Simulated assay, not measured.
Amino acid sequence: MSTIIRPAELEDLNDLTELMYDYIVGFYQNPSPPIDKVHYLIRALCDTQQGIQFVAEEDGRLVGFATLYFTFSTMKADKIAVMNDLFVKEAFRDTELESQLYLKCKNYCIDQGFANMTWITSINNTRAQSFFNKMNAVQGKDWVHFSIK
């Protein structure tokens, strides 16, 4: 099997859209966003100004993706990256491919001089938490996450 982890390209639009719907609707059971908004997001991230998406390709087909958004931290007075998504199809969870996708994000942040890479996951997603522990990530304990809809 041939695994490639690389930045997403506009040619990936349809396959990446399908993966994103698997993640948004299939995995997290969220409402399906309009396809034009998903396409806008993919296109915006392909120019790498506000963020970047990486795709995991196995034998020529996309089986996973990760999304980094770029922002700043006042506490660090520096740029940081938020890994908003790390998703692989079920058959590739807890595999070397998933690790490679995560490490691509981590190494990208190091190479680009980000102060850190941060992310959150659902409190119920114990499989992902186990994966991040295995990857030597540090679980935050100092902040409480809030959001508003």
Rank of each mutant, 00 (worst) to 15 (best):
Val138Asn: 09
Val55Ile: 11
Gln29Tyr: 08
Cys46Ser: 08
Pro34Asn: 11
Tyr40Asn: 12
Ser2Val: 10
Asp22Glu: 12
Tyr108Trp: 13
Ala137His: 04
Leu103Ala: 07
Met135Lys: 11
Gln53Arg: 05
Val88Tyr: 05
Phe146Val: 04
Glu90Asp: 13
Pro31Ala: 14
Lys104Cys: 15
Val63Ser: 01
Ala77Asn: 15
Asp36Ala: 10
Val82Thr: 04
Gln139Met: 15
Lys106Ala: 09
Gly64Trp: 05
Ile148Ser: 06
Phe87Glu: 01
Gln139Pro: 09
Gly140Tyr: 11
Lys76Ser: 11
Glu90Thr: 08
Gln100Val: 03
Thr121Cys: 10
Asp94Leu: 07
Lys76Ala: 15
Ser2Ile: 12
Ser73Asn: 08
Leu101Arg: 02
Leu101Met: 04
Trp143Phe: 11
Leu62Gly: 01
Leu103Tyr: 12
Met75Ile: 06
Asp12Trp: 07
Ser99Trp: 00
Thr71Ile: 03
Thr95Phe: 05
Ser32Lys: 14
Val82Ala: 03
Met1Asn: 02
Glu57Leu: 01
Gly140Asn: 11
Asn136Trp: 04
Leu103Cys: 06
Glu98Trp: 03
Thr74Phe: 09
Ile110Gly: 02
Gly60Met: 00
Val63Gly: 01
Phe114Met: 14
Leu103Phe: 15
Leu103Glu: 13
Phe132Tyr: 14
Ser122Asn: 15
Phe131Lys: 01
Met1Pro: 00
Thr126Ile: 11
Ala8Gln: 07
